[in-house]
């Protein structure tokens, strides 16, 4: 499914109600929600690639470019946050589960 889209020289993101919104309206909560979707292994997180000239709106270009780059990097290691937080108190869980 496409979550970040480029159309008519503008950037768009899919909001919580599954509507495409212009990227200049994106808030931090939206990015966090997209992050959850991007790291969910059951979801295929797709984005339109930003290329030379396919976004003309300069503000959109800045935001879309940064978000696209960061998500692209993240998709290579979806389990990153789970790996980092999932090992907390691993020993304790094992110890008391066995006892």
């Amino acid at each position: 499914m496409i979550y970040l889209k480029i159309d008519s020289g503008k950037g768009f993101f899919l909001d919580a109600e599954d509507n495409m919104q212009e990227i200049h309206d994106i808030r931090k909560e939206d990015i966090l929600r997209l992050l959850d979707l991007a790291t969910d292994s059951s979801i295929t997180f797709e984005m339109d690639e930003i290329k030379d000239g396919n976004i003309q709106n300069e503000a959109h270009k800045i935001i879309y470019d940064k978000i696209y780059g960061k998500f692209n990097e993240l998709l290579k290691n979806k389990a990153r946050f789970i790996d980092e937080s999932g090992s907390l108190y691993l020993d304790a869980i094992q110890k008391y589960t066995d006892s």
């Binding site: 931090k28 990015i31 966090l32 992050l35 959850d36 960061k70 993240l74 946050f81 789970i82 980092e84 937080s85 999932g86 907390l88 108190y89």
Partner: peptide, 14 residues
């Protein structure tokens, strides 16, 4: 704790 930690890591990322 793990859930909150994960959320915190994500927030830092955002």
């Amino acid at each position: 704790y793990r859930e909150e930690k994960r959320r915190s890591l994500e927030e830092t990322w955002v």
